[in-house]
Design a protein around this nucleic acid. Structure first.
Lengths: 112, 112
DNA sequence: GCTTCATACGTAGCGAGTCTACGGGTTCGA
DNA sequence: TCGAACCCGTAGACTCGCTACGTATGAAGC
């Protein structure tokens, strides 16, 4: 998968991953792999900055906890985050509809 | 529509638009608007550099022509461009499958 | 005790590519 | 004569995902 195709869709992925769950960063990456059938293997340098962006935006909050001596930062959605997720899903539908209208099979019908 | 979401998909759009047709830049922009139901309104500063990139890559070729005193550069697909289009369509399917696997409705099933 | 791997956090800087904002020129209708 | 539509193009900014790196703990193997 080309690197750039995720642009602008990463927030939606992260919000959806946290929908109804509390996860820490590393677990988010694993969850994304699982749910995408292995297609999405995001490096930490992609995910952590994105999570901070979402936190600054007020879409997620986080707490530190220590599990068997290991520091973990666990994230979960805020109300605003859930609203944002709804919007992201709508935006995704519009986006795919637009692209598929163009990508649709074969040469165009005689018109225009 | 957020600006970045097109990243990495623009080539596919342009190749698909030129599939079986010869169009000049301005007409490509109009065609994209039409096919996407108005959702895609690309500025010339996006389209022209992209076309040159595709031309450098050998996916399209172009000829100048003069129509009623106006200079036009008409583009069409090469063989390599058609192969690239097939690949782009496959990549698109994989991409949407991956994202939709994650975005799928609601909280995740009890597991993992 | 030492190494190695999986777990877990994070930053700095790069790079690609889309967008904004220009600028040039023609035709045609009001 | 003036504006709007048509048509080409470039320069530079900006965003944000990726690469590469650094830190630290726990458990397993030897």
């Amino acid at each position: 998968m080309k690197p750039d195709v995720l642009r602008g869709h990463l927030d939606a992925l992260l919000l959806a991953t946290l929908d109804g769950r509390r996860l820490h960063g590393y677990a988010i990456i694993e969850a994304l792999q699982l749910r995408s059938g292995g297609a999405l293997d995001l490096p930490t340098g992609t995910v952590y900055p994105a999570l901070r962006r979402l936190e600054r935006a007020g879409y997620v909050t986080s707490e530190w906890s220590t599990v068997s001596g290991r520091q973990r930062r666990t994230y979960h959605l805020t109300k605003a985050g859930q609203r944002a997720l709804v919007q992201e899903r709508n935006a995704w539908r519009e986006f795919t509809a637009a692209i598929e209208g163009v990508l649709g099979e074969g040469p165009w019908p005689a018109q225009a």
